[in-house]
Simulated scan of single mutants.
Amino acid sequence: MKPSDECFEAPFLNLADPDFSVRSEAVREARNKCWYARTPYGIAVLRYAEIGSLLRDARLRQGSYRWPAHNRASGLFAEWWLRMLLNRVGTDHDRLRRLVNPAFSPRLVTPLIPRFEAIAEEIIMAFKARGRCEFMSEFAAPFSTRVICEVLGLSHDQWGPLADASADMGLALGVTYEENQCRVNAATKRLFDYAQQLVAERRARPRDDFVSNLIKANEDKERLGDQELYDMIVLAISGGIETTRNQLGLGMSLFLDHPEQWKLLNAQHKLARNAVEEIMRLRPTTTWVTREPLEDITINGLVIEKGTTVHLFAESGGTDPRVFDSSVDIATEHKRHYGFGAGPHYCLGQAIARSDMTEAFRLLSRHLIEPQYDGAPAWLPDSGNTGPIKLPIKFKL
């Protein structure tokens, strides 16, 4: 890899360090010096313009397929990770994306919004009278999981075990994957068991829903193979639960740190959709995504060789002072963020995520007056996929 003129000596960021934070001063300083940094896993792109360009560049493939190898990990999760939609390329990726896209279109998501609202209301009412809650276990986990249960036609009674399995599986997406791989693989096995049970139930009693449509496509094995069917359902469960759970916690923590914005949302509930976009810009749970050049490419004078892992720091792009000011402002529509990615791998479930989080924060802001921390929160590492583990809060009745 040949350096660009601007960054003859690009800074180094140690992504392998369990204490590494995407929001650290080291990342901010690196972004000021150069648009990219060197890492143990290739390069990290830190500025908004270059992130957007590379996300849309057809010369790059999804690079996260190397993640298990980077972490010296093996087993069921690593095998699924290499097979699933996110890491397919070319016609395979296009085929699977076409099969799944209709199930996540805004046209089909919109009728579910009243159910998202009802789920949020029911969960909030269970703890509101106490004036406090542990937000992650009492709201974020049940809400995100029950939304996926609603989308997939699963019984809401299963939300607890599904949430636990998804949280354990999600550990693979952080820098502690290697040390947690036994736990990750066990959780992956549990989710495949759920997927197989769900397919058996739908084959016996078909519905007009996401899973039944996949089963129908599976009748033509060239269109959707048996393993692809189960892989897709596991992706829908794990991706839909864990990312939304984390994102709700990150959003609430952002509001706890900026109470004037919560007060504004409480006064103008219509700003809930804007609030979700501001959360995704400033505190995305997926702090970076990866790409890999299919050929040698040159960006800003930097030659990035074929096969190099390129990490695109969504959080760093969303706070780039060349594009955004430093304020948190849910009343303003900012330039597009990359919390959901962009290009051919744009987040499949973004329509559901935007809709369910909008309803969640709209209902939360209506019922929880002046929320504050009620003890110290606990956090996943502030890199990879991040979020609160525990977030105790209190509020006025």
Rank of each mutant, 00 (worst) to 15 (best):
G75T: 10
N87L: 12
D220S: 04
S137W: 00
T309I: 14
P11W: 01
Q227R: 05
L86G: 01
Q62I: 06
E315C: 15
I233L: 09
Q247T: 14
E242N: 12
H93E: 10
S21D: 01
C149Y: 10
Y36V: 09
A73L: 09
G349H: 08
I389P: 07
S212G: 01
T290C: 04
N213T: 00
I393D: 03
A126L: 03
N300V: 05
P259T: 06
T319W: 00
D19A: 12
E242L: 11
R190P: 00
V184T: 05
C7V: 12
A69H: 01
A376I: 10
C34Y: 02
R202F: 01
T39M: 08
T309V: 11
D257M: 06
F324H: 14
Q247V: 02
Q268A: 12
T110Q: 14
G131R: 15
M280C: 05
Q268M: 07
T298F: 06
A172N: 07
Y346Q: 06
G42N: 08
V89T: 15
R88C: 09
P161C: 14
L99R: 13
L15N: 02
L85T: 07
G239R: 10
V323H: 15
A204D: 05
A172I: 06
D92Y: 05
Q261M: 09
S53T: 04
L154D: 07
I43A: 08
P344H: 00
D329R: 15
W159H: 02
A16L: 02
R336Y: 13
K394T: 10
S383F: 04
N180V: 01
A141Y: 01
S212A: 03
Q261E: 15
R205K: 12
L55V: 06
L368S: 00
G341V: 04
F395M: 11
L108Q: 11
R61G: 06
T285S: 13
D231Q: 04
S327E: 15
R202K: 15
N180Y: 01
N266P: 00
A120K: 11
G318T: 08
S355G: 00
P371S: 03
N385P: 13
R28K: 13
E134N: 10
E333M: 07
P259R: 08
H269N: 05
